[in-house]
């Protein structure tokens, strides 16, 4: 078994605001995801606020996540999978993927 981190990359430009009904449908999709993969999801994770600081190599501090980037990391979850293929399958069923967000899937090195 290996641990994978799913990094949710949202478009930097927000999509049109969803209606309350669409929000509820989105929430239900998370519920379905947890139900489908149960113990495979080690940590539901969290969302990240759109604010941020970037500490440059020379010690300079800039406001916000990388502003040049087209996508910003909007959240993460941690899942348990045999290999990348399985982790990708879990990510595919995740609500972020279903609403058209990109997900970066990275395996933990396991040093910890």
């Amino acid at each position: 078994m290996a641990k994978f981190m799913l990094l949710y990359r949202d478009a930097a430009e927000p999509r049109t605001q969803p209606s309350p009904e669409e929000m509820q449908a989105f929430l239900a999709m998370w519920g379905d995801w947890f139900q489908q993969f149960g113990t495979k999801i080690l940590d539901g994770g969290d969302a990240l606020l759109p604010t941020g600081r970037v500490l440059g190599p020379g010690g300079e501090v800039a406001n916000g996540p990388y502003v040049e980037a087209k996508e910003v990391i909007g959240g993460y979850s941690v899942v348990d999978a045999e290999h990348y293929e399985e982790a990708v399958e879990i990510a595919k069923a995740c609500p972020i993927a279903k609403i058209g967000g990109a997900i970066e899937i990275r395996e933990f090195a396991g040093y910890n």
Binding site: M29, W30, S77
Partner: peptide, 14 residues
């Protein structure tokens, strides 16, 4: 407020 709710509740429960 609703947006915050779905962000938090989706991954961490209602």
């Amino acid at each position: 407020a609703l947006s915050k709710a779905i962000q938090g509740w989706g991954q961490n429960g209602i």
